[in-house]
């Protein structure tokens, strides 16, 4: 929470409340909203989803990779699972979960690359769990999860060789990538494979706009499960995210009005 507040440059005395109180309100309010929406979704309410091209075509990409006998490459990025990158890492793992379940009929396990050693066993476990759900645990390859470097550039270098040499037919990269994503995307372009990129960093988004087929911008990387599965809790979290966004927009507009009227210090 502290990290989020710092990134948003929330003042300690914003609206007369300390940062801790804002964080507490956000966490508790968000949790209440989430459970309300989960109840509503289970009761039949379905939020309207705006089309996101990256997710619309993802299933097709997986299907084509499986049919062609090749494999998927999913890179979870240089972000770590035990710091401020946890959210992005979990978002990547959610997409990996769905992709590996969809590609379980293939003989080739998707390859996952990361530069965080702690994410490595979690990624392997995610694929194993998907395969177990599909009843094909015997097809699971332990070497499919790979630690190819310990920093962003070496991750890009290692993943580039995997994309080029490991019979990869579709490339998905979701994480806190920086401009180094150009190296991996270039390898995908050379192989002429479909690429979907999602990053929470602007540099990677700009690079991906020029090189990837589909781009997931900002919070779009967090809604993969809602778009790619029928999970009610995923729909509920999407609705919660939307409501929180509108509340935030309201607070910003209210702040602008107060500032314009000279009522805010």
């Amino acid at each position: 929470m502290g990290w989020i507040s710092r990134r948003l440059e929330v003042s300690e005395t914003m609206l007369g409340m300390p940062e801790n109180s804002l964080g507490l309100i956000l966490a508790v309010g968000g949790a209440v909203l989430f459970f309300v929406f989960r109840f509503l979704v289970r009761s039949g309410f379905k939020p309207t989803l705006r089309p996101i091209r990256g997710y619309e075509t993802l299933s097709k990409q997986v299907g084509e990779a499986v049919e062609s006998g090749g494999r998927m490459h999913v890179s979870l990025g240089p972000n770590r699972i035990i710091d401020e990158g946890t959210g992005v890492t979990l978002a990547g793992l959610a997409v990996l979960d769905i992709v590996s379940e969809a590609s379980a009929i293939s003989d080739q396990t998707p390859i996952v690359t990361t530069s965080d050693a702690a994410t490595l066993p979690v990624a392997a476990d995610t694929i194993r769990h998907s395969y177990r759900r599909q009843g094909v645990i015997d097809k699971f390859e332990t070497k499919s999860s790979r630690l190819v470097g310990l920093d962003p550039i070496t991750l890009a270098g290692g993943a580039t060789s995997i994309i080029a040499d490991d019979d990869v037919r579709a490339n998905i990269m979701i994480g806190s990538f920086g401009p180094e994503i150009a190296l991996m995307a270039e390898a995908g372009l050379r192989q002429e494979i479909p690429q979907t990129v999602g990053s929470d960093r602007l540099e990677a988004q700009a690079v991906a706009f020029t090189m990837a087929d589909h781009l997931l911008i900002g919070e779009e990387i967090f809604v993969g499960r809602a778009y790619l599965s029928d999970d009610p809790s995923a729909m509920a979290s999407l609705a919660t995210q939307d409501v929180l966004r509108w509340i935030l927009i309201g607070v910003i507009v209210f702040g602008i009005i107060l500032q314009s009227l000279g009522l805010l210090g």
Binding site: V88, G218, Q241
Partner: peptide
């Protein structure tokens, strides 16, 4: 705007965990 969206996404995924 993108940072705010990412922050909200992180909050919601944190709630899910």
């Amino acid at each position: 705007g993108i940072l705010l969206g990412v922050a909200l996404g992180t909050v919601v995924i944190g709630i899910r965990v």
